[in-house]
């Protein structure tokens, strides 16, 4: 299960209306429930919000990686939202967030969950990738940039643990 395969072009969303953290997560939940029949939008939303309550998934530099486990999720799902305007996400550095990478995983896939999370974090940790994503002008371009960044990340050896 690779990150590329769980992020099809139609789930890289461009120009998503911001508003607030809650609105963004609501938007994604509704979208993913329409996109994936087995999922219920209310359930996805409450799982994502539940995770945010433990501590914001805003990791700094305008990036957030909301993630959750869901019993109705058959296989890991990823979605990417580029917001039209940055929203306050209670991020660790206090900066507003405009790049949101969402990850949903089935309940039993815990190791995959962590591996995927680490991979997403690695991709979004790169300043260059963030700049390129911010420059994207279309959904197509956004998806291409993401996949290219993920490929690049996969080729790099994992940074040594400190």
């Amino acid at each position: 299960m690779t990150l590329q395969t769980i992020l099809p072009p139609e789930r890289a969303l461009y120009g998503v209306p911001g508003g607030s953290k809650k609105r963004v997560l609501e938007f994604f939940s509704t979208f993913i429930a329409q996109n994936t029949p087995s999922l219920d939008s209310q359930e996805v939303f409450s799982r994502l919000i539940g995770r945010e309550r433990l501590g914001s998934t805003g990791i700094g530099n305008g990036v957030a990686i909301p993630h959750a486990r869901s019993p109705h999720c058959k296989t890991p799902l990823a979605g990417f939202l580029k917001l039209s305007e940055a929203v306050d996400f209670d991020a660790i550095d206090g900066d507003p967030v405009d790049l949101v990478f969402v990850l949903l995983v089935p309940e039993e896939a815990d190791d995959t969950h962590l591996a995927l999370l680490a991979e997403v974090a690695g991709v979004m940790n790169d300043a260059d990738t963030r700049t390129r994503l911010r420059r994207c002008e279309s959904q197509r371009e956004l998806h291409d940039t993401l996949i290219e960044a993920i490929d690049r990340q996969a080729q790099q050896p994992a940074p040594p643990a400190p």
């Binding site: 501590g55 914001s56 998934t57 990791i59 700094g60 530099n61 990686i65 660790i92 550095d93 999370l117 680490a118 974090a121 940790n125 940074p159 643990a161 400190p162």
Partner: peptide
């Protein structure tokens, strides 16, 4: 920031 993140982890 990157060094701190590598030490303390991505999520807080």
């Amino acid at each position: 920031l990157k060094r701190e993140r590598a030490f303390f982890g991505t999520f807080t």
